[in-house]
């Protein structure tokens, strides 16, 4: 397992102009590391559906590279999306999975079959163009440049150290973050998208 913040720091130099979406507790680390907030998009809002929304955006902008950092808890709630994505074969879609084997935000309870389930294998058999899996930072760092040159849909499963939250929700300190609406507005301006 490796740290999600270290993973994001290794990814950042190879981001280029990709549009990045994150989900899950591990995704929060990205906000401190991203060097292009204009191209960070938030489409969270329903259980397990950020990956579906990211697919929709990727289909709408086929010339833009779209990178989703998904979580395994989210994917388990919406596993059919693997077939949906593979079926549309978006060449610009990069689906990273941050697998910490638990629901970190609710106290660290394990997700079903946490340590044995093979997400990269499922993505491969669903029909993703290329799949990878990493459980250490060094190997990930050595391969990320080549991964970002692949044709999508690409799936990258990564074993992440869980950052478990056990404080009652009312006592948790949340850093201010941009709202979904704000990220959408900024990105649409950046890409010159007007309401259809």
């Amino acid at each position: 397992m490796f740290d999600s913040a270290d993973m994001f720091r290794a990814f950042q130099p190879h981001r280029d102009k990709a549009i990045v979406l994150v989900t899950g507790t591990a995704g929060r680390d990205w906000r401190e590391i991203s060097d292009n907030e204009t191209r960070d998009l938030t489409l969270q809002g329903a259980m397990g559906q950020t990956n579906s929304a990211a697919l929709g955006f990727a289909l709408s902008q086929p010339d833009e590279k779209v990178v989703l950092f998904d979580s395994e808890g989210s994917l388990q709630m919406n596993m059919g999306i693997l077939g949906t994505i593979a079926g549309k074969k978006p060449k610009n879609f990069f689906h990273f999975l941050m697998d910490n084997e638990c629901y970190a935000t609710t106290g660290g309870q394990p997700v079903p079959n946490a340590s044995e389930i093979n997400y990269a294998g499922m993505a491969r058999e669903a029909g993703y163009t290329a799949t990878f899996q990493f459980d250490n930072l060094e190997e990930f760092t050595n391969n990320i440049e080549a991964i970002m040159k692949e044709e999508g849909p690409v799936f990258v499963a990564m074993k992440m150290i869980p950052k478990i939250e056990n404080e009652p929700i009312g006592r948790r300190v949340r850093k201010p973050q941009r709202s979904r609406a704000e990220t959408i507005k900024v990105l649409q301006a950046e890409l010159g998208i007007t309401a259809a």
Binding site: L43, T50, A54, L55, F57, L59, S60, T84, I193, A196
Partner: peptide
Amino acid sequence: AIALGLIVGGK
């Protein structure tokens, strides 16, 4: 959710 992503992208 897919529809929302498409709408955000101008479709």
